[in-house]
Design a protein around this nucleic acid. Structure first.
Lengths: 64, 64
DNA sequence: TATGAATGTAAATAGAATTTGACATTAAAT
DNA sequence: ATTTAATGTCAAATTCTATTTACATTCATA
């Protein structure tokens, strides 16, 4: 499961902490998802996609 | 978080147990997701969407 | 090169997803 | 009306996600 959160995040000029605050999670959670430490829940992933003005399918790539 | 898994599943003539088997989870997990008992992980949600020939965005509706 | 801001990371813990096993309910068909 | 398949549900145990706290590392810039 890869993703391009970091690229999209930087396009918007946001820090991990900014995203964490607006999504109501911690900075470490955002960091862990960006660096593919684990799979987020669907709801958090959808909020992430919405914040980054994109879709789940464009944000996350299920490698299989 | 609503979804239309049941409708799409029946269009394909699949049972909950069929989906569970192909996705490598238990029937109870499929049932719980269909009946909105909890949010699945992103990976499972993506596999579900792929199995049902649709996208996350069309399968799940984040009510907010 | 030194300083601060942003990011990476780790361990412990809490909390939620999923499994297991079992039983109840519904739907379909005989 | 019976039987069987399919679905709904529940409790306990397990696995994994997510939080918290804390410290290390990278990166930019003075």
């Amino acid at each position: 499961m890869k993703n391009n959160i970091k690229a999209l995040r930087k396009e918007l000029g946001l820090r991990q902490e900014d995203m964490a605050n607006t999504l109501g999670v911690t900075r470490q959670t955002i960091n862990a998802i960006e660096n593919e430490k684990y799979n987020p829940t669907l709801e958090l992933a959808m909020k992430l996609a919405r914040l980054l003005n994109t879709t789940i399918e464009e944000l996350f790539i299920l490698d299989l």
